[in-house]
């Protein structure tokens, strides 16, 4: 790895760290219903929403009402998203005259965007109208992100409050998140992206004369290329900030109209981890103990830093089989070297590897390089980060509430060691919380592994795979892991078919909500519990020791549940490669 690679990585994480405190403090003010600057220009809109929806903002909900409001809201979003795709052929803003999306693909896409997964089994520019992209997908980008953040805030209230049964109002949390956090940040980022060349237009496709004529598969001369455009920048901004990841174009952030320059690449990469990282600080502020937030942020960073050098080194080293053929893959003054298959030259090895780690550490899923073309160990890293449960930064809201489930497991393990009832931030962790945390942690490996096992056992699954052997297995394992953990990135090489559309749709849906419901149940259980005063027997949860315990718990659970499957995929592929 060159020193420039290290400098780029350090600058990235340095800027990210610098943004954590101001944004985290601001978000805490939004959630504490304190006055924020944006309430002056936007407060009327917030009040209008409440009045139109018949919501009384002071009416708080118990956890069951909160959970059912969340589910009902998401159900309406799912049906709307399904219908808009199916009916796009007769709806306006369809300059390319696209027909309605096929039912199985529409249900997959609806489940995917509803849950912040943004798994894409379609090519955006060749399948979806501007209306579907804007009013269907981009709207869900906002709402799914806001849903995740609302669930997190409800859990924080459960941990902080000492009495009562309520954990806030889902409608208020959803509205304030969208209006005061996601919309302003997206607007700023979208304008910057447009200034750099990301397109934003309602025009239909643009024709461009080819420099060299070619011919199609029927031998007919082709002299013109069709270049797709559309309202891209507005969608890309929230796609990154909301850890959604669904691109306007099929090539996602490798496409020059989504991510044209090194600056857009840096800003989009920053946007991926910005809110998940800042929410740790929000957590500390709302809890009244910032150290609790910092230790969780440190745990997230530690999990990423453990594997980031591996992906950069694996990609920079290049393919040994090509070296044997005399291909020069060394880093030199004339060449960036390394494995450049599936990567954009303008981003190179480091920015492709860093993006791959960031997008899979967060449950973003956008890509600026094709993970399928990474070296086996390079591909191992994104897969591993997804398999940790999207808790190393993770999705907006969902990453932190996922990590808090591991915190509960960690304090339980520590409690077993010393023979005391486990506590976290003064709240006793009892049988109910452990049952709920267990459901939350076990559901994603269950969905990913059973799903992948089923897919490799049936013809509909294996026939969709583009590569034979261990790499093909990795493609299926990656797809199910990505969907179960609501990441949404694809290893590529897997073709869509009705079986995978439906199977992955189910996995996506349960991966989100079967995890979210127990989290809210824990919030409801904890909210009424008194805070136990700190004593000499209390396990401090803000120390480096707890950091090690937490990281160890995440690694052990991740390693033990997924390692056999990983051994059959990228590990075997690496061994075969070096054995040749």
């Amino acid at each position: 790895m060159s020193y420039l690679s290290v400098v780029q990585i350090l600058i990235y994480f340095g800027v990210l760290l610098a943004a954590v405190q101001p944004l985290g403090a601001y978000m805490a003010r939004v959630y504490e219903n304190e006055r924020v600057l944006l309430e002056k220009p936007l407060g009327w809109l917030e009040r209008l929403f409440y009045r139109a929806a018949g919501v009384r903002p002071d009416d708080e909900m118990d956890w069951k009402t909160y959970a059912k409001s969340m589910l009902l809201f998401n159900l309406m979003g799912a049906v709307f998203l399904y219908l808009i795709q199916r009916l796009q052929g007769v709806l306006p803003l369809n300059p390319q005259k696209f027909a309605g999306v096929a039912p199985d693909l529409a249900v997959n896409t609806a489940a995917s965007f509803l849950t912040n997964t943004n798994w894409q089994f379609y090519g955006g520019e060749s399948t979806l109208s501007h209306l579907t992209q804007m009013f269907g997908l981009a709207v869900q980008n906002f709402l799914s992100a806001a849903t995740g953040m609302a669930i997190l805030v409800a859990l924080i209230r459960g941990l902080r409050r000492k009495s009562g049964k309520t954990i806030g109002s889902f409608w208020v949390d959803l509205t304030r998140t969208t209006l005061y956090i996601l919309l302003p940040l997206s607007l700023v980022l979208a304008v910057i992206l447009v200034s750099q060349g990301v397109v934003q237009t309602f025009r239909r496709d643009v024709g461009a004369a080819l420099l060299q004529a070619t011919h199609d598969d029927k031998g007919k001369d082709v002299t013109e290329q069709t270049i797709s455009v559309g309202p891209v920048a507005s969608q890309i901004a929230i796609k990154q900030l909301g850890t959604n990841g669904g691109g306007f174009f099929n090539a996602n952030s490798a496409h020059p109209f989504e991510n044209p320059t090194p600056l857009t690449n840096f800003l989009e990469m920053l946007a991926i981890l910005l809110i998940p990282a800042a929410l740790c600080y929000t957590y500390g502020v709302m809890l009244g103990d910032r150290r609790q937030g910092w230790v969780l942020l440190a745990a997230m960073a530690a999990l990423v830093f453990m594997v980031l050098p591996l992906v950069v080194a694996a990609e920079q080293a290049g393919n040994p089989l090509l070296s044997k053929l005399g291909v020069d893959q060394r880093l030199s003054t004339l060449s960036a070297g390394g494995n450049m298959e599936g990567k954009e030259v303008r981003f190179g090895i480091v920015n492709s590897s860093l993006w791959a780690a960031a997008t899979t550490a967060a449950s973003n899923g956008s890509v600026n390089a094709m993970h399928d073309s990474f070296m086996p160990l390079g591909g191992f890293v994104p897969l591993w980060l997804i398999m940790l449960g999207e808790v190393a930064f993770g999705g907006v809201g969902s990453g932190l509430y996922g990590l808090l489930m591991y915190v509960i497991i960690a304090v339980f393990i520590a409690g077993l060691m010393v023979g005391r009832t486990p506590e976290y931030v003064g709240k006793k962790i009892e049988a109910f919380e452990m049952k709920m945390a267990s459901i939350a942690i076990l559901i994603t490996p269950l969905l990913a592994l059973v799903g992948a096992a089923t897919a490799v056992s049936v013809h509909a699954g294996t026939s969709a795979v583009g590569n034979p052997g261990a790499h093909g297995f990795s493609e299926i394992l990656y797809a199910f892991s990505s969907c179960a953990n609501n990441n949404g990135s694809a290893f590529a090489g897997l073709s869509a078919n009705p079986f995978l559309n439906i199977a992955l749709g189910i996995v996506i849906l349960f991966g989100r909500f079967v995890l979210a419901v127990p989290v809210l149940a824990i919030a409801g259980s904890l909210v009424g519990k008194n805070i136990v005063p700190t004593s000499s027997g209390t396990l401090p949860t803000h120390t480096p020791l707890f950091l090690v315990l937490l990281v160890g718990t995440v690694l052990l659970v991740g390693a033990l549940t997924y390692f056999p499957a990983l051994a059959l995929g990228p590990v075997v592929e690496h061994l075969i490669m070096i054995g040749r």
Binding site: V79, Y82, A521, G524
Partner: peptide, 30 residues
């Protein structure tokens, strides 16, 4: 027909999660 089936799948999926809310509530009491 296919559309009805697909919408039913979405409603059914989220409906199961709705039941999970009640199951978790029941677990809390027992």
């Amino acid at each position: 027909m296919m559309d009805l089936l697909m919408v039913a799948a979405l409603v059914g999926g989220l409906g199961l999660c709705w039941l999970l809310v009640d199951f978790c509530g029941w677990t809390a009491k027992h």
